[in-house]
Simulated assay, not measured.
Amino acid sequence: MSMNGEYLRVTPAELTRALKDPEWALDLVEEIQDVQEDIETTPAEARHFTTHQTWNLLDFLLKRSAFPIDIVHGEEPFAEADDWGYGPPQYMTADRVRLAADTLTQMTYDQLIQCIDHSELAAAEIYPQIWDSPKSLEWARDLFTPLTEFFQAAAADGHAMVIWLD
C-alpha cells in the first residue's frame, strides 16, 4: 500500500460544515472522487487532486525553499476527525490558499530542485525510497505544475483546502 497526498477544494461554507462534521467531509471527499473518476478534468477544474507518492519529496523541497505555508500536510487540524488514511485531515483557509497559490506561481520545479543531490533525499529517508540516481529528482516534475494550477483555481474561486495522506 502506498501513501498519497490528497487535496479537496471546499467553499468556506463547506469548510465550516466539515470542521463541525468530519464524517460529512469524508462522505463529500468520496462523492467528489467518484464523480471525478467518471469524467476527465484539468487540475483547474478539479475539486480533488492527488500528488500520489510525491508528497514527501514535495514537502522536503518546499520546506528547503522556505515556502511560507505547509501545503503538503495542511496548517490546521480537524478537531475531532478520525484518520483518513495516515492521520486525520488538516485544512487551510481561503486566505492561506491564496497565499500558497501566489507563492507557487512565482517558482518553478527547476528552482525547487536546484542544488539538491539525490543522495540528500536518501539520507533524509524521503518516501518512497527511490533515490538511487540523479534522474530520480525528476519524479515529481509532472505533478508540480498541475498542483500549482489546482491551487490557483482554488484561490481564484475563494476556496479553502482540506489536505490528508491516504
Rank of each mutant, 00 (worst) to 15 (best):
P77I: 01
V97Q: 04
S65N: 06
T41L: 15
E45M: 04
T105D: 13
D70K: 01
T41Y: 15
Q36E: 15
N56D: 15
E75K: 06
F60T: 03
L61M: 03
N56K: 11
A81M: 10
Q111P: 08
A79P: 03
C115V: 13
F60W: 13
L99M: 06
A66E: 05
S119G: 09
M92P: 02
A79K: 10
E40C: 13
L112Q: 02
L57G: 02
I32P: 02
I32K: 11
W84F: 00
E40H: 15
I69R: 05
N56Q: 10
D82Y: 00
S119Y: 09
H48K: 12
A100E: 02
H73C: 06
D27G: 11
I113T: 10
R96I: 05
R47K: 10
A44I: 08
A81D: 03
E120V: 03
Y86N: 10
I116K: 00
L26Q: 08
E76P: 00
D70I: 05
E120I: 06
T108G: 06
Q36I: 10
W55M: 05
D34A: 15
R64G: 04
R64S: 09
F67T: 01
D117G: 12
E45S: 11
T103N: 06
A101T: 11
L61D: 03
K63Q: 13
A94S: 11
Q111L: 15
T108E: 05
T50G: 13
E80G: 10
R98A: 10
I71R: 00
D70Y: 00
A100V: 02
P68M: 04
R47I: 10
I69N: 04
H73V: 08
R64M: 09
A79D: 09
D27N: 11
T54Q: 07
W84I: 01
F67V: 02
Q114L: 15
I116T: 07
E80F: 08
L61A: 09
D27E: 14
A100N: 03
C115Y: 13
L28W: 09
D27A: 15
V29F: 15
D34K: 08
K63A: 13
V29K: 08
A66G: 04
I32H: 10
L57E: 05
Q36H: 10
Q106D: 14
P88R: 12
A46R: 07
Q114G: 11
V29R: 14
E75A: 09
I32M: 12
Y109G: 06
A46M: 09
D59R: 08
F60Y: 14
G74C: 03
D70W: 03
E31V: 14
N56G: 07
I113H: 01
E75R: 04
